[in-house]
Simulated assay, not measured.
Amino acid sequence: MEEDGRRQKHIILVHGACHGAWSWYKVATLLRCAGHQVTVPDLAASGIDERRLHEVPTFADYSQPLLDIMAALPPGERVILVGHSLGGLSVALAMESFPERIAAAVFLAAFMPAPASRPSHILDEFIQQAPMSYWMDTQFSSSRSQEKSPTSMLFGPQFMSLKLYQLCSTEDLTLGMTLVRVGSLFHEDLSSAPPFSKGRYGSVDVVYIICCQDLGITKDFQHWMIKNNPVKEVKVIEEADHMAMLSRPKELCKYLSEVIDTYA
């Protein structure tokens, strides 16, 4: 399909923990208006996916909707993958599984693992640096009755308004508080997973977008991840909180369009 004389590019937007495809509504609209094909999946037990968390015991199960999309791509098609927050680990799993189908991967204020370490290492470092007071009114629960069920997590209103959405409109905060669902970091499962490989995960060009006003995954921690796993390119949004797709959609879309033009 041709748009303005150019082949239409395919970009896949992956949401973070407790969120869903709905969180990308502004950026998805802007990218589609620019002529790109945009796919925005709900990961398992997220958004409008009907499963509950106890039906999704592993991180691979949680990420399966993204992996299914990647597996179904037409032969020869290469996409731009964008992962936000915990969605970075889902993107990393797709990079390991389908490196030949990815033109570039974008980590937006996202957890980005290094090939030499287990996928859980990035979460270990994050949890170690974040005191329990950091989580504020976020609710955690471990189900003893269901042995394989991951520890659940539900962001509280104070945590969302002060750590994630502090630069977003009141309307977008209300939308977020209405639509968030119980999720998980899948820390237990990721602790037993092997490292992503340099030959597959490490072969994909990576762009990291730093959100400087992020109080969820702080700017300092984002810089640490980049130092731990150097990337092809770093872009910076100075006035973005954790939910840059809602607080700075036009600036984010501009950067994503630059990635598409450079790598796709």
Rank of each mutant, 00 (worst) to 15 (best):
P99G: 06
A104F: 13
I80F: 15
H84W: 15
Q128T: 02
D49F: 15
L86C: 00
A60F: 15
F111Q: 01
V56E: 01
P74I: 00
L43S: 08
G76A: 08
L53K: 05
A109H: 13
V82Q: 06
A71D: 06
L123V: 03
A94R: 11
R101T: 02
P57A: 05
M112K: 08
D61K: 05
I127K: 01
L67G: 00
F107C: 04
V91D: 02
L123I: 10
H121K: 13
L43K: 10
P115S: 05
A60M: 12
I127T: 01
G88K: 05
E50V: 12
D124H: 13
F107G: 02
S120G: 02
M112P: 11
Q128W: 09
L108F: 10
A116G: 08
H54K: 12
E100I: 07
A94E: 03
A44V: 07
A44G: 14
L81V: 10
R78C: 14
A110Q: 01
M95G: 05
P119R: 01
A105D: 01
L67Q: 01
A72C: 10
P115Q: 03
V56L: 10
S117C: 13
A45F: 11
P41T: 02
M95I: 06
A103M: 10
P113T: 00
E55R: 03
V106R: 03
R52K: 09
L89V: 06
